[in-house]
Amino acid sequence: MTSLIPPATSDRAAKVMLWVSASIAMLTLLFILGYIVVQGLPVLTLSFLLESPRLSGAEGGILPAIVGTFCLLLVTLLSAVPIGIGAAIYLAEYAPEGVVTRIISFGVECLAGIPSIVIGLFGYAFLVIYLGFGFSILSGGLALMFMILPWVVRVSEESLKAVPGGLREGSLALGATKWQTVSRVVLPSAIPGITTGVILGIGKAIGETAVIMFTAGSSLLMPTSLFDPVRALPYHLYILASEGISDKMAYGSSVVLLVMVLVMNLAAVAIQRHYGRHHVRN
């Protein structure tokens, strides 16, 4: 290299730049989080959490939105976990090498890449209209399931594949059938990894807005059945912010939403730490 700058100097300068870049990334994150928390914490009172909104959200609390979010997540969880883990078991333990398996893996990849708004559109056309579920918890929860399913499948598959082969062999050698081996030996050892993945998936679903907008409705009433519409917290936040109803309430909602996501993330990290074998990558 015919640079005029001595190598040692450029090396030093470059390293300083790298440190600066990393600091910028860190500071951006801290700034965003700090800003939300500082603005939102004063809004957080018991009545904010436990009251229904008045004046379309300008006053009162956000209880129906919190309940709505939990209902949606419950449907998502109950549908995504069995299907996702079942699919992962098939892919990791049963699937023969071949065209069908490759199509399935490709389908999972495809689904993961579909933009959330497209899943929302599909949820509207398929669940709300075609299947006649209407704007409801069921439609919204299932649409969210479509979104996190590939995530659950992928993480579970990785965790299953990370279980040492010796365990399977031992079990089979004792005369257990394939399913006995999978369900009693392989699956239990993969549970920490799977749980981490599911929790992170739910964490993604909590904040998702575009998917539930056209599927879960926007009612601020308390839901009484699976077919009632609800307005999830992120959608409530969007309406508060974009229609300029109340910035104060929007900050409060942001903090609550953020706390829910953080709790999920921390739980996932804690499980990972506790079992500490299998690292789940984002």
């Binding site: 996702g84 079942g86 699919a87 098939y90 399935i104 479509f146 499948v153």
Partner: peptide, 27 residues
Amino acid sequence: SERIIELLLFLSAATAVLIVALIIIFL
């Protein structure tokens, strides 16, 4: 029973493909 279980597992694995297909069809 083993056969049935394998079939069920296969069906859940095929769900992802089914959803993608449905998305394309409905769009």
